[in-house]
Each structure stands twice: as structure tokens, then as C-alpha cells.
């Protein structure tokens, strides 16, 4: 076996002095980092799954997410649909930037990168709106106005002459209830949002670099590819968050 001594390099990919994965160390590190980050999100979603499975009741997503700017209620999931579309769209522009990078086309890279940054910023804006809206409904990381056990109280308070909104706020502030749903929602979407935010920041930096011609000088646009991987990963995570929080 290994005691066989052969010529140093027969040109096989695993023989050393080579890149067996056909990827530079930077790309490899990004891939493995993403794998690692995937486990972080997995653990969070696992916590979500286990707690949801163990809970005796759970908020109905159709009720929670039924608002969009301009529509106070009655449009379930429309807004998150828009958010999903924005994020997928920005993923597409990112791929287009990478593709342009392969053709060493600086102007196109910059164009698509700017679109990607805009997409990311729009997504963040949407998330900010959604959070604000939920806050205004009385939700926070430790308050869950959608908890089914609050419904009778809200009804009671409404019967006492309060508006539905007031009654909800009163109930959520005074009655102990299970707020796992909102805790998990804000934690996980927050963690995802944090990833989007850092992605946008990184995208801005590399857009500026691309404008300045750094990658042109370097001769390749691999940096765009690496950052692109990260950006798609953020999209990927959203796909799961979307399914598990909004649909299931």
C-alpha cells in the first residue's frame, strides 16, 4: 500500500499540489462556513420544531400574518409573499453578477450588484415594517397577542366596551400566556435578518471594490462568487423560515 513509492505527482487530483475540490481555499472556507451556519439555523429551527410539537396550542399563521401596508387585515401571507419574491429576485441578480464576473465584465457586475444591494435593503425594509406592525399589535419577544388562550379574555374585554385593539393590548400585558411563538419568531427572523444585514454590508463593500476595479486588476471576480454563495445561503434559510413560520 502506502509503502509503494511512486513518482511524486501523477497528476491525480488527490496527489497534492492540487485542488481536489476544484475550488480555491477561500471558496472552500466559504462553503464550509455556510455548512456550519446551516447547523446554527438548524439548531434554532430544531428548537422551534420541538417546542411547537410540545405545545398544547399554537398561533395560526394565517391570522398573524394577514396584514400588508395599506391593508390592515384580511390579506393573509400576501406581504410575506412579496418579501419572498424580493429575496429570490435579489438572489437572481446576484447570480447574474457572478455570471458577469466570469465574463470579466466590470460594468455588468457593478450593475447587478447594485440591484442585489437594493433587493437586500428592500427585504430589510419589509422586515422592519412587519416587525413594527407586529409590535403595534402588542407582540414582542415576550408577548404573544395571538396566543389562543388569550381569546376569551379579549372577548371579555371587548364585551366590557374596549376596542379589539385595546382589549388585545390589555390581555397581552396582564394575562400570562404562552409566548413561545413570538419569542421564536423574533429570534429566528431576527437572526436571519442579521445575516441579511451583514450580507448587504458585505455586498456594498464588494460593489465599491468592483467599481474601483480591484477585481479587474486581480484578474478574476472570485470574491463576487464567494459573497454570492453567502447571499444565496441567506435566501436558502429564508425559504425554510418561510415554510416553517408562515405556512406550516
Amino acid at each position: 500500500m502506502s509503502t509503494h513509492s511512486v513518482a511524486a505527482n501523477e497528476g491525480k487530483i488527490w496527489d497534492g499540489g492540487n485542488e481536489p475540490f476544484g475550488a480555491s481555499y477561500g471558496k472552500l472556507m466559504m462553503w464550509f462556513f455556510l455548512l456550519s451556519d446551516a447547523f446554527t439555523f438548524t439548531a434554532l429551527l430544531l428548537g422551534y420544531g420541538a417546542l411547537r410539537f410540545s405545545a398544547l396550542n399554537w398561533a395560526d399563521p394565517d391570522v398573524v400574518f394577514q396584514s400588508a401596508p395599506g391593508i390592515e387585515s384580511g390579506a393573509p401571507l400576501v406581504f410575506v409573499g412579496i418579501m419572498t419574491f424580493i429575496l429570490i429576485m435579489s438572489s437572481v441578480t446576484m447570480v447574474l453578477a457572478v455570471e458577469a464576473g466570469h465574463r470579466n465584465s466590470k460594468s455588468e457586475v457593478v450593475k447587478w450588484m447594485i440591484w442585489t444591494v437594493i433587493g437586500g435593503a428592500m427585504f430589510l425594509g419589509c422586515q422592519a415594517w412587519e416587525w413594527t406592525h407586529l409590535f403595534s399589535e402588542g407582540a414582542s419577544i415576550t408577548k404573544n397577542p395571538f396566543a389562543p388562550e388569550l381569546v376569551p379574555y379579549i372577548e371579555k374585554f371587548v364585551a366590557q366596551g374596549m376596542s379589539h385593539h385595546e382589549a388585545t393590548l390589555k390581555a397581552v400585558n396582564e394575562i400570562p400566556h404562552n409566548y413561545e411563538f413570538t419569542s421564536l419568531f423574533f429570534t429566528i427572523t431576527g437572526f436571519h435578518g442579521f445575516h441579511v444585514l451583514s450580507g448587504v454590508v458585505i455586498n456594498i463593500i464588494i460593489t465599491i471594490n468592483a467599481m474601483a476595479g480591484t477585481y479587474q486588476r486581480r484578474g478574476h471576480y472570485e470574491m463576487i462568487e464567494k459573497v454570492g454563495l453567502y447571499w444565496h445561503f441567506v435566501d436558502l434559510v429564508w425559504v425554510f423560515v418561510f415554510t416553517f413560520f408562515y405556512l406550516v
Partner: peptide, 22 residues
């Protein structure tokens, strides 16, 4: 994490000529 990523990338990509995995 930073350490580990570095180790993996180095081991995969930066072996000298003839340094097979085996």
C-alpha cells in the same frame, strides 16, 4: 470555527506535490 475552516481548507488544498491523502 475560524481555526477549523482554516485547517480543513489547508489540508485539502495545500498539500505539497505527492502528499496524497493516504
Amino acid at each position: 470555527l475560524m481555526g477549523s475552516l482554516n485547517y480543513i481548507a489547508t489540508i485539502l488544498n495545500m498539500r505539497t506535490v505527492g502528499m496524497k491523502m493516504t
